[in-house]
Design a protein around this nucleic acid. Sequence first.
DNA 1: TTCCCAATAT
DNA 2: CATATTGGGA
Length: 300
Amino acid sequence: MREEEEPNWFARWEEELPRPEELMPLSQSLITSELALAFDIPTQNPNPAPGVHHHGSTGNQHSASPPLPADIESPDHSAPTGDDSARTLKRPRLVWTPQLHKRFVDAVAHLGIKNAVPKTIMQLMSVDGLTRENVASHLQKYRLYLKRMQGLSSSTAGPPMPMSAADAATEQLFASNPIPHPLLGRGAPGLGQESFMQFMAPPLLQHHQQMVAAAAAQQQYYHQRQMGHFGSPGTVGGGYDHGFHTRGALPPHRMGTPGFGMVRPSVPAASNSYDDDDDVDSRVGGGRRVLTLFPTCGED
DNA sequence: TTCCCAATAT
DNA sequence: CATATTGGGA
């Protein structure tokens, strides 16, 4: 007698949730190049299930989803025992690129304040290699950022806010992406974690051997960005320069030899946003080689 | 058990 | 400096 349960809320979920096309490409990034090379992982593109067809965008439309740029610091742990997958090993420092953060924010926005807990966020993001700790740590920072923003926006004729350099830096990242409004108190109405988890599980868990090579060698050692100043979000001084291409498909080249590589003594140009910059950003700064991978992420 | 927050370490 | 890690309360 009761054939239809609640197609309503579920339908809503389907629309609100990122489509498989958006989630799948995400699960490829957090692998270190060394690991990929060590395992001789082919640069197979996860071929986002073409079977899924969702066209009904009732106001919620996303462009094709770009590969996720999760950047990791070079592990530089020589040859893991071999059968140790990236799990017990010490993971390299996660670099939160705007795109990665975008997914983070997206997940939080969809989950709502109530459900936006590290574990859930992590699962929703579906980024292979992302750990709860990663998310938790960033979540903390993100919350502080939001708080700061709100308290700050209220202050009209206040005295010059002595923003710390650290604060400015964080804002740089966060300012790169829009802050969802509903974030401030909206969640799945009547839905508990458990409820939606059932539906999310299948797509998330289907990441069989989806270890795709990240890209070229990511000799990210340290990430110190001595950016000039802060001020206007949007003009975030990034200074991205094109090093070489290695996005999407893995370059047949085995580059990334530690110790040299594409060292390019180019000072950060006055570039800015990452909207059309989709390559590897490699720059040398004070002896520290930094390689940041960027996707051609146009995102929305 | 996980979350959350602050401090601390790298 | 950005994350990671830790510690203790909820």
